[in-house]
Design a protein around this nucleic acid. Structure first.
Lengths: 113, 113
DNA sequence: TTGTGGTGCTACAGTATTTGTAGCAAATTA
DNA sequence: TAATTTGCTACAAATACTGTAGCACCACAA
């Protein structure tokens, strides 16, 4: 799949609007999950794989490369880690953690109606 | 694809942790894009399709159903629209719009190194 | 009442992506 | 030196997505 870089055409936008590149990147299977799981601490390939519910190594490797190419993840001596940008991005995703509970409760209420 | 509902096993978590259900839902092709495009104003099916870079009607319909089932989107007399929950979610995604520019600039700087 | 155009889809074949299993080379530990 | 661990690659099977065609329904017009 074409790497979604801001400035070039991506899935979702021929204009290369940065937000569309970002949504394309994050909309790929496991991208969000990888960022989410990586924020706790740097992980080795296999640790990350196991945190991500045994994502296939093929895909994990593909995603890692994409996230490295887009400066969100980097390889350190402790394993894979979020870059400064990656941490900023995590800061944006983080609130979803608590919101997801609100959402879960609302859905529960709904299913009991 | 199985609907990712908090509380049941989803792609990424057998425990059904709400955040994992949410990340699964949002990690699907076009989910984020649909929420993003829908926040401007309610849209008809075809309007939404055209805003989403001519997403195939098959997939658009699938995603709409998922988002309706998860109380993020609803059908109104003006077309499809974000629910109250959907708007809250958009509030979380919205900051990505401006961050994506930071990211784009950083990547640009990087490519010139 | 017959058209014309828009809308919300469904069908389906073709293509792309993801999974799951196997396994291997290099580095580390025993 | 012999495990064990790690970071992958290969590849076939399963699943998801695209793109085009087209249909049923509605509104309005001739």
């Amino acid at each position: 799949m074409k790497l979604p870089l801001p400035g070039s055409a991506v899935r979702g936008s021929k204009t290369g609007k940065p937000i569309m590149a970002l949504l394309d990147l994050l909309g790929r299977t496991w991208s969000l999950g990888i960022v989410w799981n990586l924020h706790y601490e740097p992980c080795t390939f296999r640790e990350l794989q196991s945190k991500c519910e045994d994502i296939s190594p093929t895909l994990l490797n593909t995603r890692i490369r994409e996230l490295i190419a887009t400066a969100i993840v980097e390889k350190t001596c402790d394993g894979y880690a979020l870059t400064r940008l990656g941490n900023e991005l995590f800061g944006l995703i983080k609130p979803m953690g608590s919101w997801s509970h609100t959402w879960a409760e609302a859905l529960e209420g709904k299913s009991n109606e």
